[in-house]
């Protein structure tokens, strides 16, 4: 475990806490894409299959349980909670995310470390995570104004994968046989997708103005 990876996991955890806070405190999920939340729940379920078979460390196990539980809780909240679900922007959240699931699954069948179910699902979860934010970014573009908590949520989510890239560089330099091309390339693509959001987020932070995304 190195500082970059710990920082990455903590910002990832922070993004989920910010989102839960926003939904719980305001009892509203306006501006949040349910499709992105469903994709993240799928990412964690597909990736953490080894939760009960391979024990890595207490930290690893606890974080996996937290990520699976929180992502399912958010999806449950947005779909079933009587108060929250009313504020869901159903007509704005129209990204066809089933194409993302299909496309990344096919890619995982072709590009994986080993043609076993667990490895294919792991690669699938890595590719899906890279594109899972797209429905959310499209929703933000459509709704134009970004409320602070949602903006912070997306910002921390982007920052976490950026820290992971530093972690992979560090591990590549310090561990003789560390190669993780699938996660690395996919992680770079994922961080790249946030680039434009980061740009507007930084501009709004510098001008101390409201975050506006060009429609």
């Amino acid at each position: 475990m190195n500082i970059f990876r710990l920082a990455g996991d903590m910002t990832h955890l922070l993004s989920i806490i910010v989102l839960l806070l926003k939904i719980y405190a305001t009892k509203s999920c306006s501006g949040i894409s349910l499709k992105t939340q469903e994709l993240y729940a799928l990412v964690f379920l597909a990736r953490y299959l080894d939760l009960f078979t391979d024990f890595i460390s207490v930290y690893n196990t606890i974080m996996k349980v937290v990520f699976i539980a929180s992502s399912l809780a958010i999806v449950w909240c947005m779909r079933l909670h009587p108060l929250v679900k009313r504020s869901y922007d159903k007509e704005l959240d129209t990204f066809r995310h089933y194409f993302l699931i299909g496309g990344t699954f096919v890619l995982a069948l072709v590009l994986n470390e080993k043609f076993t179910l667990q490895e294919i699902l792991w690669a699938f979860s890595i590719y899906l995570e890279a594109v899972a934010i797209l429905p959310q970014l499209v929703l933000l573009q459509r709704s134009g104004n970004v409320d602070n908590l949602t903006g912070q949520y997306v910002f921390f989510l982007g920052a976490y994968r950026a820290f992971y890239i530093l972690n992979w560089i560090y591990r590549y330099l310090t561990e003789p046989r560390f190669t993780r091309w699938i996660a690395c390339v996919s992680g770079i693509v994922q961080t790249g997708i946030y680039a434009d959001f980061f740009y507007y987020y930084f501009i709004s932070w510098k001008n101390n103005s409201k975050l506006k995304l060009p429609a």
Partner: peptide, 10 residues
């Protein structure tokens, strides 16, 4: 044979 990279990352 190269031991499979253990998936120790989240």
């Amino acid at each position: 044979a190269q031991k499979e990279q253990e998936k120790d990352e989240l």
